[in-house]
Design a protein around this nucleic acid. Structure first.
Length: 503
RNA sequence: GUCCCCAUCGUCUAGCGGUCCAGGACAUCGCCCUUUCAAGGCGACGGCACGGGUUCGAAUCCCGUUGGGGGCACCA
């Protein structure tokens, strides 16, 4: 008699999709609780591309309702990463918009209103189960091979029972009563999906402190902000029947429900979700590691999507003109650092020398190498075809810009490159180089090869001692260009030093 | 365990019933070029998970098996 009736069974069918045109509204909704991950940014990229492709609106909403996990640093870092990736938003933090604010922590009244409405209508109930009780029952269920989800214990508490719990000092969460029935929707990437609510347990929509939880906040905002297409990870497919149930309980007309597109997850080499254990996940890491945002974006776009045919090297223009969410793959994509390196290398090679110089400058500065603009311009052609990541420029050019006092020949290089016969090459070079008038690569080359000819050495045996003497390594940028850049004085100084250890 | 989803070279993928004894890229391995390393060129290796159907015809459609991923939180 005092038990709540509970919601009537439903058969939700959400098959119609809003048109893909300039009325489209998509969003990226990160929780700023750490660095943005590879998966987050790919989701952002696809969602952005979907809106941009059709001339729609892309918005950024920050899901920072869990105060214990989010931080301003992470928030700022997220905006920074999106900016670096050239993912811009029409509405959201920094730019505002008709549905401001766009940080959920500033929208709490909306969620409180929705929660109150759900409680009043009986769609949600107070649940007094404690976290430890829930965990215990979950374990029991698991052990008995039953589904571990919430068992509905507090669904029909009487007023007396509630009073007793409260007298006990228990707090409660607001839990949504999932109606019996099924939900079917037409997923933009996966097609029609039907889920039986028997597999969708009741779920908490507020914490015991009254704070809204993700399912509630996202459901409220997605409709309130007029979103038409939700692009998110596959981990959220079972959130869909819950959110549609929430829309219904909140009285949102079905014409306003967004369509959903669930992207396949990005996994590591071990088939497990990409994580710190099986790869790097932080976009900030890739940025620091010397990847171009163009290269990373290109690679990420390839993870689960393809423009078709043999096209693999492409930039934003192609995404803007051809991105098609229905072409997104349904199975998980393995993240492959080697391929990223290759794509990034292609991008580095596609840059003009001046563009590359601009990208390299900060990398060299970070490595403590002092280089002026002229030196940098001279050096770019030497490294452009030799690197896949910007940071490799610092290694390649170290010998050129390091303080003379700090220059040293690597031990392995000295052993291999300054062995038998190298002394003769170096002494001859010392002598003939002193007489060279025109200190240019073109003029230096015949002088050095002449030494080899006179000594009866092939080019490799001629060049190697000099390479090691001048660069300290067995591998380096081309020898004569390096000599030119190094200059006569430093070249002769290093040769003289190497003669001391040469065989 | 259960529900949902998925299944083409080692990896990312093209393919949407005949044009595929399956194409590209990365990786690997050769060769060429070459002062090292690269880049570049050429080539090799390598796959439709398995079993049933449907069809004149299947990588493409259906069913099953196997395998993989995801969900079942007071995280999002």
């Amino acid at each position: 008699m005092s038990t709540l009736p509970g919601p009537a069974p439903v058969a939700v069918r959400h098959l119609a999709a809003p048109p893909m045109n300039s009325t489209m509204r998509t969003r990226f909704a990160p929780a700023p609780s750490g660095d943005l991950h590879v998966g987050n940014v790919r989701t952002a990229l696809f969602s952005w591309a979907l809106a941009r492709r059709h001339g729609g609106t892309f918005l950024l909403r920050v899901e920072d309702t869990d105060r214990s996990r989010v931080s301003d640093e992470a928030f700022n870092a997220a905006l920074d990463v999106l900016g670096w990736m050239s993912i811009d938003w029409d509405e959201g933090p920094g730019v505002g918009g008709p549905y401001a604010p766009y940080r959920q922590s500033e929208r709490l009244p909306y969620y409180a209103e929705a929660a109150a409405k759900l409680r009043a209508s009986g769609a949600a109930y107070s649940c007094y189960c404690t976290p430890s009780e829930l965990a215990e029952r979950r374990e029991q269920a698991r052990a008995a091979n039953r589904p571990p989800g919430y068992d509905g214990r507090c669904r029909s508490l009487t007023a007396d029972e509630r009073a007793a719990f409260e007298a006990e000092g228990r707090t409660s969460v607001l839990r949504f009563w999932m109606p019996d029935g099924t939900t079917t929707w037409n997923d933009l990437v996966r097609g029609e999906i039907t889920i039986d609510h028997a597999n969708v347990p009741d779920f908490a929509i507020t914490r015991s402190d009254g704070h809204p939880l993700y399912l509630l906040a996202a459901a409220v905002d997605d409709v309130a902000m007029g979103l038409t297409h939700i692009v998110r990870g596959e981990d959220l497919v079972t959130a869909t029947p819950r959110q549609l149930a929430l829309y219904t309980a909140l009285g949102q007309p079905q014409e306003r429900w967004p369509a959903f597109a669930h992207l396949p997850l990005i996994i590591g080499a071990d088939n497990q979700p990409l994580s710190k254990r099986n790869g790097e996940v932080s976009i900030a890491w890739y940025r620091r590691a010397g990847f171009l945002s163009e290269g990373l974006g290109n690679y990420l776009a390839l993870l689960g999507w393809s423009p078709g045919g043999d096209r693999e090297f492409f930039g934003r223009e192609l995404l803007l003109s051809e991105f098609d969410v229905s072409r997104v793959s349904k199975n998980p994509a393995r993240f492959d650092l080697k391929k990223l390196d290759a794509v990034n290398g292609d991008w580095i090679r596609s840059l003009s020398e001046s563009e590359l110089a601009e990208r390299i400058a900060p990398v060299l500065a970070d490595a403590g190498l002092k280089v002026d603009a002229d030196q940098l311009a001279a050096v770019v052609p030497l490294v452009q075809i030799r690197m896949n990541r910007l940071t490799e420029a610092a290694e390649l050019l170290h010998f050129l810009f390091v303080d003379e006092a700090a220059f040293a020949i690597e031990e392995a290089a000295a052993t291999k490159g300054l062995g038998e016969g190298s002394g003769a090459v170096l002494r001859a070079a010392q002598e003939r180089l002193s007489a060279v008038q025109d200190w240019s690569a073109a003029a230096l080359e015949p002088v050095i090869w002449g030494i080899g000819e006179d000594l009866g050495l092939n080019r490799k045996r001629t060049a190697t001692p000099l390479r090691v003497a001048l660069t300290g390594r067995m591998m380096s940028p081309p020898l004569f260009e390096s000599m030119e850049l190094l200059g006569r004085e430093r070249t002769l100084t290093r040769i003289a030093r190497a003669i001391g250890t040469a065989g």
